[in-house]
Design a protein around this nucleic acid. Structure first.
Lengths: 152, 152
DNA sequence: CCAACCTGGATGACGCGTCAACCATTCCCG
DNA sequence: CGGGAATGGTTGACGCGTCATCCAGGTTGG
């Protein structure tokens, strides 16, 4: 016997699905329009900005961003083509690769960050109460816990 | 002066972003593994199942799903290749097109639906309180309102 | 009537994301 | 040692999603 969703669950689920489709799209458009960056670009650049010598090992980027390696590889290739980052060999480990922030990349994220965080404020936090913000965090933590549990 | 995110906002935001990346991915994998369908396939098939004569005008599907027309067109092309749907001309309007559910499509979603809703229960609703479910809906409605206002 | 406009839809290019396969290097253990 | 397993990374194919562009068929106003 299938457990279907009740009225309240259905409404919340539908609304959540819609938000989850439209919010990233809106933030992406804003970033793209104002700074020529995508959300994925932004995430990578943030990690590199916070790193010593503006460089991070690829596998560490994967860990920090929770990305799989092939995803990072593709992303870095595209960003390299736009000269936001470069790759460098690691001496001491012939397999490894550093992803290195370029000056252009640095400039791009410094320009983008304030506009992006402002958009996040406008679209999300300005309309939510402290309580709602707290609950959002709890919900996400719960679901993430479930996801981790499921993967064993 | 940029308004950065405070501690609580930052935690909620990060957790939300992570959930939003991993939850659809997990649901997609489940659906793909158990039924050979994607979430996008599922959404389209649901609409068609609820429709008289198992067919809906393309532009009505766009309205119902909040998709843009090119997205639907691409999706229908892929689904048609797998014989989940077909297209039919509309008599009375030479531009229009019906998207029509096939028997294979009908069988696919009937098999997929119970497993999918079960996964949604397991990953989301089983761990949330009624209050959290309600708040999730409120949050999504707030943000969707903001998004609509911005496009105003 | 017909030209301008609007609507419904398709297409191509590109970025994002996953999966599977592959390759080189390094590690580890018998 | 030497050979198999693990690690770090790349690549190709494919589905998803957006944007810009195009097109045919309708609609409307002068």
């Amino acid at each position: 016997m299938t457990r279907w969703l009740d009225k309240a669950e259905q409404h919340s689920w539908r609304a959540y699905l819609l938000m989850q489709a439209r919010l990233p799209a809106a933030l992406n458009r804003q970033l793209q329009r104002d700074s020529g960056l995508s959300l994925a670009d932004f995430d990578v650049l943030v990690q590199l900005t916070d790193a010593p010598a503006r460089r991070v090992r690829a596998f560490e980027l994967c860990r920090a961003l929770q990305w799989e390696k092939s995803r990072l590889s593709h992303q870095v290739r595209r960003m390299q083509a736009r000269e936001l980052v470069t790759r460098e060999d690691v001496d001491g480990d012939g397999r490894g690769a550093f992803v290195v922030l370029t000056d252009a990349g640095s400039a791009a994220i410094e320009a983008a960050a304030p506009l992006h965080v402002e958009a996040v404020h406008r679209l999300v936090f300005d309309t939510l109460t402290r309580q709602q913000v707290a609950t959002l965090g709890e919900i996400a933590d719960e679901v993430l816990g479930r996801l981790d549990a499921e993967r064993g």
